[in-house]
Simulated scan of single mutants.
Amino acid sequence: MKVTIIGAGGNIGQRITKEATTRNHELRLITSKEKSFFGIDDVDIKAVDIFDTETLAENLKGSDVVISAYAPPHENTDLIIDATKSLVEASKKAEVRLIAVGGAGSLKVSEDLLLVDAPDFPADYKSIAVSHQKALEDIYLKESELNWTNVSPSAYIFEGERTNQFRIGEDYLLANDKGESAISMEDFAVGILNEVENASFSKKRFTIGY
């Protein structure tokens, strides 16, 4: 498949790129990183402003699916909302499927409680969690034309190993018997590429965790 990865040089984007190369997809990377950063020879790399919708759309054309691992700056997390609006419009113009990395904060921990509203939710991550929640609720869940998928990690996502042993959920936070909710970036990437190939969650959000 022809796969375009936005934010390919970020922590999660790197893992998605690496996983995609092992599956022999034809890749196009949108990132400010140089080709040598990835160690991939046969790949098209461009630096495209995610907020320039028209130019972005032109660079998405011809792809079967676009994966966005765009992360906003810590000092202005609401940029994820503007970026999402641009991504959605560009993807519609280019007539491609969009899979976007979301946040864990919008996952339910009980019927009436979201993770971001839990008393012990870390204050340092509140802003980005709320911004991702707005993008999901105000843009993706109201979008009926585009074939979109939003992917939430577990509460704790870390640099680790590719085990290929994880669970898939929808709107509820995944946790083990000890109440721990975690996923490695490597396995998160596996789950995303599985979705690229199987398309199980069209116009839905899903989550990946141990």
Rank of each mutant, 00 (worst) to 15 (best):
L193Q: 01
V116W: 10
F37K: 07
V130D: 08
S184R: 11
I139G: 02
I139F: 02
K178P: 00
L146V: 05
G103A: 02
D112L: 06
D42K: 15
E159L: 11
E75W: 13
L115G: 02
V66D: 04
I67R: 02
I67A: 03
F51A: 01
N11C: 09
T84K: 04
D124T: 13
I30C: 11
Y70G: 04
K61E: 15
D42V: 09
A100I: 07
D120P: 00
D120E: 15
G13H: 05
L114I: 03
H74G: 12
K108A: 09
V130S: 03
L141R: 14
T163G: 08
E186Y: 06
F206S: 08
P153Y: 12
R167F: 00
I168F: 15
K178W: 01
E197W: 08
P72N: 05
N176T: 08
N59L: 11
I157Q: 07
T21K: 13
S154H: 10
D42Y: 07
E26M: 10
V3Q: 02
T163Y: 10
K46T: 12
F37Y: 15
G9H: 04
V88H: 01
Y172W: 11
G7I: 05
K204E: 07
S152F: 06
A104H: 01
G209R: 12
T17I: 07
D64R: 05
A69I: 07
T77D: 11
G179P: 06
A57R: 06
T149V: 13
V66T: 06
A129D: 01
T207L: 08
S91A: 15
D82F: 08
E89W: 03
I128C: 08
D52Y: 04
K203M: 09
I128N: 10
G7Q: 04
V3H: 01
L115H: 02
A123E: 15
K46M: 13
S202W: 00
